[in-house]
């Protein structure tokens, strides 16, 4: 029966709002006569609604918010433009700085400087000649690294760790690519066959260089 009661609440609401048709009004009144929940006052006592409608016409309060809202809108717009211009300016400045850094080669030098104290040493090969001389070549640049300790090792000791000139990783990669075009008999300990009577020795990584 609840749905039926809901129906009469809708009818009562329509009567309160003055939207009920004559037949709806009759239907509600007939129901209200028998229903303890829906007495006739439910639909007829719309005094509060009428007072509300009167209040609307009597009110004198007139707020002036136009300027406040427009100011907020302009502030937000200025903020948005500031942000857009700022982003473009900072982006442009950053692009210029990066360009200068790359073009002048500063980036390479900086990278090298930053890597030097911490870079892992690249594996290198040392070539000992029959005359007792030594040529140390790194895998990275494929040129002898004439480090005093390395030369000392090459001529006297054969199993101690050797301090090598640190090779930045990016250079090591570049060197590894160009290694194939170099004469293998000189610098590559892995492919050196010893046909000309020389001996080869692979020098393992000795650790990070402390300065």
């Amino acid at each position: 029966m609840r749905w039926r009661h809901t129906r009469y609440e809708v009818l009562a609401g329509a009567m309160l709002l003055g939207e009920a048709s004559e037949s709806e009004r009759d239907e509600f009144i007939a129901h209200a006569a028998t229903c303890p929940l829906c007495d006739e006052r439910t639909a007829s006592d719309g005094s509060a609604l009428r007072r509300l409608a009167l209040l609307r016409d009597e009110e004198t309060w007139r707020p002036a918010l136009t300027e406040a809202v427009l100011t907020r809108i302009r502030e937000r717009r200025a903020k948005r433009w500031r942000f857009a211009f700022g982003a473009v300016s900072y982006g442009g400045a950053l692009a210029v700085v990066l360009n200068v850094v790359v073009v002048t080669g500063f980036a390479d030098r900086l990278g090298e400087a930053l890597h030097r104290p911490f870079a892992a040493l690249a594996p290198a090969s040392a070539v000992l000649t029959p005359a007792g001389g030594a040529a140390l070549g790194s895998d990275a640049k494929l040129t002898p690294a004439f480090d005093a300790n390395a030369l000392l090792f090459a001529s006297t000791r054969k199993s101690a760790p050797v301090l090598m000139r640190p090779i930045p990783k990016h250079r090591a990669a570049r060197g590894a690519r160009s290694q194939a075009s170099q004469p293998p008999a000189v610098f590559s300990g892995l492919t050196f066959g010893g046909d000309d009577g020389t001996r080869s020795l692979v020098v393992e990584k000795a650790g990070n260089l402390r300065r």
Binding site: T6, E9, V10, G13, L16, L17, T42, L49
Partner: peptide, 10 residues
């Protein structure tokens, strides 16, 4: 809406 108005009036 009508139902809510009715209940609100009550």
């Amino acid at each position: 809406v009508r139902q809510r108005v009715c209940r609100a009036m009550r």
